[in-house]
Design a protein around this nucleic acid. Structure first.
Length: 512
DNA sequence: CGGATCAGAGATATCTCTGATCCGGTGCCATATT
């Protein structure tokens, strides 16, 4: 085999002169044919870890990506860098065009797909005819965070890997705690994955936890803070409605700032616009749900405030990690009130079905079958049982796993259900316990009297870097000593009035 | 927790108020006829 000089290849194909931390080690292992789990901090160039192998391997690299918008960005970027043999396959492609592309898939070296797309046997059949040499799972923590309930096809990637005759696997993530790493490895059925784990602590972020009595007080605190600091800011919420409401009242109190909201219930075009205006500093504060963030690479976000708590520490690390990508001093602030825990606990609970829901489903299907009536599609499950969509997906996945459901076909009989009921019930309990454990970890962390930085990172890695500015509110964090550098100009100074008007229209604020 | 929604009671046959109850967040996918 020809000896490849990786630096030369990197220069030749991507015009970089040297590798960043971790890249070369991961790429060497991948080229050697190993299965690899790579956990690299954000902004460290994770995508090169599979893009360079895609150039060097004699075959196709398949990348599973969680969002269409991420795939589109990647493809655009690669094409701009004259890597042309790239395609993203998803529901945005017109049917005819997809058919045409599927018949000519061997024209590509790098193919992006969603986990759902990959589950269609017709799609997989096309891929099976190709020499797929590398199977990449980008943002691999999704396997653990979404795969159990929200997007169960993330837990079925191992089926595709087997169907493709076991190409080497590369799973990449920026924040995978040991719990998540275990989950990824187990779910992919690759117990011998080689781990390349790099620390994820962020020395330029100071952590600040403050307790408030109620929502009113939270709002007042945020109002004060954004009055003092005109910096790009994210405020995270658990409810879409709360995000919108707070955005509106902040906008009313701070007419000099450009404030928008962002959540999954908005039109795609609107979401894109808010995101782009934030990137270009036309918006400086976004009140958002967890929908905002993946793939956002704005270097100068200085302040990330949590108005509500996320459901696990992993989510918190991801969300706060969007601050200070440029290495400059930033703050992660958590505002909480005692009752917030109940909100989170409720969300966790609603994500899982009760075993009675499944009993009810089984007897309903059996009754319908007896009367030769039409059976509901699995997609209608949450309507039928009047449960959360995630809970319905959980049922779907469990029935699939035990052979009571195949594609869209119910294979239910009461005897079979009786046999597997106990194991489904056990799994359900296990998930509930796990989720409560994760929630509890976060809650313990918020309430600790010890150093927040140490308590946050200690369970996941050995030590952490000395903070470059202030440490945390348990180590004497002082707002008055925080001097964020701001490349940011307020919209008033740098943009003509019509921008303001436009933004106010976005916020549905009529001019008074 | 806080809000939205709903059922039932109250003074009167349509509405208004009150207390109980429920729920909140992430995104793929979809293939049809004129």
């Amino acid at each position: 085999m020809r000896i490849i000089h990786l630096e030369e290849a990197l220069h030749q194909h991507f015009n970089y002169d040297f590798f960043r931390q971790g890249q070369k080690e991961i790429i060497s292992d991948v080229l050697r044919g190993e299965d690899v789990l790579g956990v690299l901090p954000t902004g460290s160039g994770k995508s090169i870890c599979y893009q360079l192998p895609a150039k060097l391997l004699d075959g196709i690299t398949l990348v599973v990506s969680p969002l269409i918008s991420l795939m589109v960005d990647q493809v655009k970027e690669l094409k701009a860098a004259s890597f042309k043999e790239v395609i993203a396959l998803n529901s945005f492609l017109p049917f005819q065009e997809q058919q045409r592309i599927l018949k000519n898939l061997d024209a590509y070296r790098l193919i992006y797909v969603s986990p759902e797309w990959l589950q269609k046997s017709a799609h997989l059949n096309y891929l099976k005819q190709l020499p797929v040499k590398l199977f990449v799972v980008d943002e691999a923590h999704c396997i653990s965070q979404w795969g159990h309930e929200f997007r169960p096809d993330y837990q079925r990637l191992h089926e595709a890997i087997a169907a493709l005759n076991h190409p080497r696997v590369l799973a990449l993530s920026a924040t995978a705690t040991p719990d998540v790493q275990r989950d990824i490895i187990q779910s992919l059925h690759k117990p011998d994955m080689k781990k390349h784990i790099y620390p994820m602590d962020r020395k330029n972020i100071a952590f600040c936890v403050e307790e408030a009595e109620n929502d009113q007080e939270k709002l007042e605190r945020i109002t004060e803070i954004i009055a003092s600091y005109a910096v790009p800011t994210l405020i995270y919420f658990t409810s879409r409605q709360a995000a919108e409401e707070v955005a509106l009242s902040l906008a009313a109190k701070h007419p000099e700032r450009n404030i928008a909201y962002y959540h999954g219930g908005m039109e795609a075009a609107e979401r894109l616009r808010v995101q782009q205006q934030f990137m270009s500093n036309h918006i400086d504060i976004i009140c958002c749900t967890s929908a905002f963030g993946m793939g956002i690479n704005k270097p100068d976000i200085r302040l990330v405030i949590h108005y509500h708590l996320p459901l696990q520490i992993e989510s918190y690390i991801q969300e706060v990690g969007r601050a200070g990508r440029d290495g400059k001093s930033s703050v992660g602030m958590i505002l909480y009130q005692k009752g917030d825990f109940r909100l989170s606990a409720n969300m966790v609970k609603n994500e899982l079905p009760a075993i009675e829901n499944i009993d009810h489903l089984v007897s309903t299907i059996v009754a319908l079958q007896r009367q030769h009536m039409d059976l509901p599609s699995p997609e209608q499950l949450h309507m039928l049982l009047d449960i959360n969509e995630g809970a319905a997906r959980f049922i779907q996945r469990q029935l699939q796993k035990h052979g009571l459901l195949r594609d869209n076909e119910w294979l239910i009989d009461e005897e079979k259900w009786k046999q597997v009921r106990v194991s489904v019930m056990n799994y359900l309990e296990k998930r509930q316990l796990y989720k409560n454990k994760k929630l509890n970890e976060l809650y313990q962390w918020i309430q600790t009297k010890n150093c927040l930085r140490k308590t946050l990172y200690h369970p996941f890695q050995n030590g952490f870097e000395k903070p470059s500015d202030q440490c945390c509110s348990n180590c004497g964090f002082d707002w008055s000593k925080w001097m964020p550098s701001s490349s940011f100009k307020t919209a008033e100074a740098s943009y003509p009035v019509n921008w303001r008007k436009k933004l106010q229209r976005i916020l549905h604020l009529e001019e008074v």
